[in-house]
């Protein structure tokens, strides 16, 4: 029988350009270096049993990433955390380790901190729009779609925009799309280059995952 664990980790500036796919490999190799008895899938090309919550876009940092991992032996969660932290590349750090499965299947909402070059004013007017239409690239060409329902909240403080957005497999809104919409609809607003940081992920009732 395999034992299930999940880990909460952060990815900082130093690894923000690592794509999700590459990140999976980075993690797989860290597990090998740490000699963690990870369980492997069956079949011709066995791979370690890892599960990731929401993939992080290239260029983003985060402090709320989750990975699920199945081990063939039991290990104390603290030890798991320590052993992995000892071998992970700089910029990736396990913040906590837990036994059992995470709630990541229920993931519904994510909060991002966006740091623009210029702080916007008049966000209330933006939020009061009934529809916020943006062009979205799909396989069949460019389609207009309304992102308003997926914006749960936006708070602006000096130098920072905090966005609460739909996340997960059903509706997933990226903060960069919201920034594009703000540039388009907010009179005279130009964000400039932004940096993006994922702060927290929640289920539909705003319980932290």
């Amino acid at each position: 029988m395999n034992s299930n664990y999940y880990l909460r980790y952060e990815r900082d500036e130093r690894v923000k350009y690592v794509s999700h796919l590459d990140f999976v490999r980075v993690f797989g190799r860290a597990i090998r270096r740490a000699h963690i008895p990870v369980a492997y899938s069956e079949g011709f090309n066995p791979h370690p049993l890892l599960g990731f919550a929401l993939p992080l876009s290239v260029g983003y940092t985060s402090e709320c990433e989750i990975i699920e991992i199945a081990l063939s032996e039991e290990i104390a969660p603290d030890e798991l955390q320590e052993r992995l932290n000892a071998v992970l590349p700089d910029g990736i750090k396990i913040l906590s380790a837990h036994e059992g499965k995470s709630n990541m299947k229920k993931l519904d909402i994510a909060v991002y901190n966006v740091f623009p070059e210029k702080t916007p004013s008049g966000i209330a007017a933006f939020l009061s729009m009934k529809e916020i239409l943006i062009d979205k690239k799909t396989k069949s060409g460019i389609k207009e779609c309304d992102i308003r329902p997926d914006i749960k909240d936006i708070k602006v403080t000096l130098g920072k925009i905090e966005m609460t957005l739909s996340a997960g497999s059903r509706n997933n809104l990226k903060p960069e799309v919201v920034i594009a919409a703000m540039n388009k609809y907010m009179d005279g607003y130009e964000s400039g280059e932004c940096s993006y940081h994922r702060k927290q992920i929640y289920d539909i009732d705003m319980n932290v995952i």
Binding site: Y17, S19, V26, R29, G59, P89, G91, E193
Partner: peptide, 17 residues
Amino acid sequence: ALFRKVQKATHYCGGEL
């Protein structure tokens, strides 16, 4: 400003294990 614009930023930005 450079890394954001290119497809494979990890080829230039260092920090590998």
